[in-house]
């Protein structure tokens, strides 16, 4: 079942300047992105900083205004809805943020942080609320006493779990995870990733996983899309993309991942040099005159590439 369908999504930010701060130009942060999420799967959006992956993620929760395009969530278009109309959907789509240090209010206790979404949507007595919060704390592996503590009393990994608990309280269907582990150490990162997988099975969650670390994305995602300058350049099953990248940008991105085997490093350097040369020589094959990637074309039932 298709849970989320993003169709030709565009998010343009105005650049203002000149007389009366008129709009002089637009930054096309997301410029025509389409993808689909099936119920229960994990879809990854990868790209470098500035590629528009986070903007896409935020547009789905409507933290950014959508310039044009459709965001169909269970068949209903969210893109055109007003703030008031979108409110009921906020229950179903939740977000996990990148930085566990700045995404938790330092002046609130853990109880208030985790209960905040609940208080927005449900009328519960303090006792009921406390019980729910404690249940979720238990699920994310934090001790029940932590409800009266403040965020600074926790380590990075624990804070990220508080953020995760907060996103789960309303039993959402879709979770947008915007680089949930990039601020964490490898060992803690492993903890959070395992844990996200466990929760997915337990609550039947669908993840839109935004990230720049291809290792993490491959580990977590069934399907993924590679973004470059606001456009998708390649989309398909994670394995297909890793083993058989077609677009020059995807090839460069994969060649740039450091390998854990020291023996092959000489070849890697050569491969990267070769790809840089290929990128320059065959630029027109992959991008039009304005530097935009072409539209995606299917090369197999599950694999689409932006080729001319």
């Amino acid at each position: 079942m298709t849970l989320l369908k993003v169709d030709n999504l565009k998010v343009h930010f105005p650049i203002r300047g000149g007389f009366f701060r008129r709009v002089v130009d637009h930054v096309k942060a997301v410029d025509g992105v389409s993808f689909e999420l099936q119920q229960g799967e994990t879809y990854g959006l990868v790209g470098e900083s500035g590629s528009g992956k986070s903007t896409t993620g935020k547009a789905v929760v409507k933290l950014n205004d959508v310039t044009s395009g459709q965001i169909l969530f269970e068949g209903r278009d969210l893109a055109g809805l007003s703030r008031k109309e979108i409110k009921p959907f906020r229950k179903d789509i939740q977000m996990i943020f990148q930085d566990p240090y700045s995404s938790l209010n330092p002046k609130k206790r853990v109880l208030d942080i985790i209960a905040e979404p609940l208080r927005n949507f449900e009328r519960l007595s303090p006792a009921e609320e406390k019980k729910i919060v404690q249940d979720f704390l238990d699920k994310v592996g934090l001790s029940p006493e932590s409800i009266l503590k403040y965020p600074h009393e926790f380590s990075g990994g624990q804070r990220q779990r508080i953020g995760i608990a907060r996103s789960l309280t309303l039993k959402p269907k879709l979770i947008i995870a915007d680089e949930p582990v990039s601020a964490l150490d490898v060992s803690v990162q492993a903890q959070v990733l395992n844990f996200l997988q466990d929760l997915q099975t337990e609550f039947n969650l669908t993840y839109l996983f935004v990230g720049h670390d291809l290792g993490v994305i491959r580990h977590m995602c069934d399907r993924m899309g590679v973004m470059y300058r606001g456009r998708l350049v390649e989309e398909g099953k994670s394995d297909e993309i890793y083993e058989n990248p077609q677009h020059i940008y995807t090839k460069r991105l994969i060649a740039a991942i450091p390998d854990l085997e020291p023996e092959v490093r000489g070849e890697k350097v050569k491969l990267r040099k070769k790809l840089t040369a290929e990128y320059e020589s065959s630029y027109s094959k992959f991008f039009d005159e304005d530097g935009r990637a072409y539209d995606l074309k299917p090369i197999s039932p599950t694999h689409r590439v932006a080729l001319h």
């Binding site: 490898v186 060992s187 990162q189 492993a190 903890q191 990733l193 395992n194 997988q197 670390d213 291809l214 290792g215 993490v216 491959r218 580990h219 977590m220 890793y242 994969i254 991942i257 390998d259 854990l260 085997e261 020291p262």
Partner: peptide, 29 residues
Amino acid sequence: FSNPLHPYTRSLLNSIPSATHEKNRLHVI
């Protein structure tokens, strides 16, 4: 990398989600 011995080194190596490896569970220290 071919013969890590100390538990810490081995755990670190095992906790990396690698682009080339299979989707098994990551080791958590």
